[in-house]
Design a protein around this nucleic acid. Structure first.
Lengths: 238, 238
DNA sequence: GTCTATAATGAGATAGAC
DNA sequence: GTCTATCTCATTATAGAC
């Protein structure tokens, strides 16, 4: 009776089917919102095979993350390296650093393979959890270098930016990028259809000047000789 | 045997205990990550009482949202109204609009009553879900007016800003505010303790100039007679 | 309003035949 | 590698005594 797409000419190997289904469902409903039975049904596979191939549910989740995290991190880092090579001084401008960071993810989000989109939705969701979700530890080790290298680049591009401002601003850019690739549909609704979640060209051409100008506004004024009126020098933009 | 904090001098009514526990746990682990038993244990109440007072789990969730959403929305709207009254022209500047929007939530996040923090974490988490989580419908109706009024205010403050840029930029500010009040601890770790999630004074004094300059950078150049060199003039802050 | 008890379902995981 | 069958436990929800 229960034949699974009979005579499917090209049926992916079971492990792949399970990983793809897990990726999609975890992204949509979160780790606890998905049962192994949901995954097996979506993958058109017997329930027992999920445990057979991946062990416990948490291990399955780890595999879903591990399959793409290194490639994603490498890609975002490579985009920065490219900017370094193309910059005459070897120090890319704020614009270019932000461009590299955003496009590294945006390009994956709009690939025809929806798997990347699901993966990005999944990590965006995991990074919003205020408690240690099972995803956080592997994500931290995979993306730690990305954060470090980008913050170093920002430091070189804006040497007078304060440390706290630098880390916070980079965190905000992360927050924006993650929420864009999450494609929640909220932007579409709030703009009454004028903006579309999947329009990454528009997002990129807006986000680069937005964030670059935002960071620039946080750079303190250069060596104020006269004592400032009330606030410490350059606390409010300019 | 199973006495619940015997002789507690002031024990909140059961309905409140259940709501508070639900709010906290839903925020930490998400809707599906929490069982009614978890909630009953945390509230120090019998499991059956949860169903008795609130019916099904989804109804309980709805009550958790409904308890605070109207007050939150009102507060954020009132902050904008205050700026309107204080502005000489009746049209607050970009800075002041952004200040009103952010401080309306930040002030609640740092109240001694941790309930507000949990509520804000909960809606931040819900707003990251790429699929219709049970929270989204009530949240949309509660916060729809907030989005509308703030976008109108931005439109007045920056009349030449394009519609798409306006909605997108406001969405980004929302994204930042929500991730800050979620207090995931990620910023703290990435900055190696230099920035603290709970330091809303710093967040506010950084976010206002950052976002105002970011939006300003998106305003098209005024009637450019000569073709701009590379970037449109006025791309950097105000 | 509160508690005990239980019904009904679904969960994760494993054993063993093929 | 795959499938059937099953174990054990936790889940939501309700019924009924107090």
């Amino acid at each position: 009776m229960k034949t699974r797409s009979p005579r499917a000419p090209t049926r992916l190997p079971t492990k792949f089917r399970i990983l793809n289904a897990s990726e999609r469902l975890f992204a949509e409903r979160g780790y606890e919102g998905v049962s192994l039975r949901d995954i097996a049904r979506d993958a058109d596979v017997e329930v027992a095979l999920v445990s057979y191939h991946f062990g416990a549910k948490q291990e399955l989740f780890r595999h879903v993350i591990a399959r793409r995290s290194a490639e994603h991190a490498d890609r975002v880092l490579a985009a920065l390296e490219r900017e370094r090579l193309e910059a005459p001084t070897g120090v890319p401008s704020l614009d270019r650093i932000i461009f590299a960071f955003c496009s590294g993810s945006f390009e994956l989000a709009r690939l025809p393979d929806a798997g990347w989109k699901h993966y990005l939705q999944l990590i965006a969701r995991s990074a919003m959890s205020p408690v240690n979700t099972p995803a956080l530890k592997p994500l931290n080790s995979a993306y730690g270098p990305v954060v470090r290298r980008y913050c170093e680049a920002l430091r070189q591009a804006a040497p007078r930016l304060r440390d706290g401002d630098l880390y916070t601003a980079f965190y905000w850019i992360q927050s924006i990028v993650q929420r864009m690739v999450a494609e929640t549909g909220i932007l579409d609704r709030q703009s009454r259809g004028l903006c579309r979640s999947g329009d990454y060209e528009s997002h990129l051409t807006r986000l680069v000047p937005f964030a670059a100008a935002g960071i620039t506004a946080l750079i303190p004024a250069r060596t104020p000789r006269r004592k400032p009126t009330t606030a410490p020098p350059g606390i409010r933009s300019q």
